[in-house]
Write a protein that binds this DNA or RNA. Structure first.
Lengths: 344, 344
DNA sequence: GTGAAAGCGCTAACAA
DNA sequence: TTGTTAGCGCTTTCAC
């Protein structure tokens, strides 16, 4: 294995010259330059990353902590993050916790060991004491789609969940729906809170009251949608539409409609949230709120780097706009609404 | 930031004692032990990963190279790999190439810099010269779902693609289908070759000839399925079933059937390959060949580690069995087949 | 059982 | 411009 010293020897210069030349902070005489290039070529020199890290202080690695890669939203976020990071010559260390306390701790240990230059936390509450410690020690962290009240001085980036939910719900009320159900996510997540707030606000603006027993929640998974459907359909208010705070719950819900003998959007309109790749191929194609995943990931990477570069940089909070993508899963209600029916 | 030396000083022992104690290769007197533990606690000592790597030689990181995380199969493979790696106290460095030559090279550079202990290559041809160099230099590599003729001495692991395709196709012919179309993947991939071979073999066993113009190919993506469908339906042989070598093409195909006025499985039976999470929620639920993703990932990790531990260990080839999962997308053909019809 | 000392391969003052 | 010299924090012979 070739080292810097070998190259230096072969090129008859000092190691530091090679080091600085290779890192581009040195312009030297053509002759010397050629000799070094030759040596690198011939000896097939590849700088040792570990040594670089120890000496240089930075690792060139960003940690990406997320609950679960089998959720396509996180998967595409991870993809986008890796892509954005590569643009800065950084790589991603994947930390999928699967919501297991043990996994989380193992990863936190590894991460706290200065194995990464910064951390991107997504889709989960970072109520980790060791993480808090690491942050206090100066580890740059950015939280995606969550607000951390407990941990100050952390940058955050998220989409405008409130607005997205508002747009989706208003779209449904605008279509003439007077009773719109809601299927959300885990109560502790900020995304859930904001989306629910947006839903409620849109209902209020349309002069419709919310009904607590028309609002369901569970993990952002297909099963949540599957199990919510029968309860929606048998509800006395007879909702004609449902806003799902995740494409995956919408997908689950859609998969169950046949069994219950209803058609979408004929009997029930459905709007999702995320614009996952797959919902372009469901039947009917899902109307949904698009999250700008690439921008979210790129923004997250930029925010960490901002603090990697300048430890004294203050934390920032970014909110990205979302967009309603109209497809085929929502339509006006079949029968004209009867006044007062939602209150019957 | 606390270092080993700080701990040693606080515990009034030498750095080497602390080092060996912490790495578990030393049993020392209760009193000393307590002092060290105290010091670690109080000083919040966390060993520096970079230093460990430089001195110890191993990085604790496995590189995972795949084309694209937005393909759910790769995503869940990545998830499973991270999980398996964590079990060995290893983390995963994510390298999503997006089939871009440039990305691949960037990653290869990073990887060749001994930034990882080993490499898991999945879903793509590793025809990378620098990679070949790294392998020659002793970097342990395992290829998932591909056979590398060019690169010897590399371990491989894959599912039994031939058998899976064979089972799927035989299931269809067993149902009474006399004309079964095939929608496959990129011709250069081993998975495609093997699945096509399995399909052909099953057709042969059923006494049915293959028809080249009934075999389609393209990326393992939804669009491939979407565009194959009309060509299948208008084919003179009037296929009553189709085997898709990927769930995603099957999904695309399924999404297009309404437009073309056919029903599944009434008019057309469909079988996929992968058993992606999402196909449990399509309508109809997809009958498909299940890939044992967790076992595949765990096996891949084990294979790399085998060679990390013992550089002289010979390469191994593992093949995992697959299983046909019968759901609702395939049924006997509507009309009894007419003899000779497939040749008309 | 414990310690001293020599690196691992690189970067970055500081000189020259 | 280029070279010299210390380390970065840890592991690991090798003595004691």
């Amino acid at each position: 294995v070739t080292t810097l010293a070998d190259v230096a020897r072969a090129a008859a210069v000092s190691p530091s010259t090679v080091s600085r030349y290779l890192s581009g902070q040195l312009r030297l005489q053509p002759a010397t330059e050629r000799r070094i290039q030759q040596a690198v070529q011939v000896l097939k020199y590849i700088p040792n990353a570990s040594a670089k890290r120890l000496a240089g202080g930075s690792t060139g690695v960003l940690g990406l902590v997320l609950p679960d890669m089998s959720n396509p939203f996180f998967a595409s976020f991870a993809d986008a993050t890796a892509q954005a990071a590569l643009g800065h010559d950084l790589t991603i260390m994947l930390c999928a916790t699967r919501d297991s306390r043990e996994n989380e701790e193992r990863y936190t240990d590894l991460l706290a060991a200065r194995a990464v230059d910064g951390l991107i936390y997504v889709g989960m509450h970072a109520r980790n004491p060791r993480l808090a410690q690491a942050i206090a020690d100066g580890l740059p962290v950015v939280i995606v789609d969550e607000l951390l009240e407990e941990v100050p001085s952390v940058s955050t980036i998220s989409v405008d969940n409130f607005s997205g939910a508002f747009q989706a719900t208003r779209y449904l009320t605008g279509l003439g729906h007077r009773c719109v159900a809601y299927v959300g996510g885990p109560a502790e997540l900020m995304t859930e809170k904001e989306r629910r707030r947006g839903y409620t606000a849109a209902l209020g603006q349309a002069g419709l009251g919310q009904q607590d027993d028309l609002m369901f929640s569970g993990p952002y998974s297909e099963d949540t949608g599957v199990s919510a459907l029968p309860r929606i359909l048998t509800h006395p208010s007879r909702p004609t539409a449902v806003f799902c705070a995740s494409d995956y719950t919408a997908l689950g819900l859609l998969s169950a409609v046949d069994l219950l003998g209803v058609t979408v959007p004929g009997d029930l309109s459905v709007v999702g949230f995320d614009d996952a790749q797959v919902v372009r191929y469901t039947r009917p194609k899902l109307t949904t709120v698009r999250q700008p995943v690439s921008a979210l990931a790129a923004g997250a990477v930029d925010l960490v780097l901002e603090r990697v570069g300048d430890a004294s940089a203050g934390p920032r909070q970014l909110v990205l706009p979302v967009e309603l993508i109209v497809r085929d899963s929502a339509a006006p209600p079949a029968q004209p609404p009867v006044t007062g029916r939602t209150l019957e």
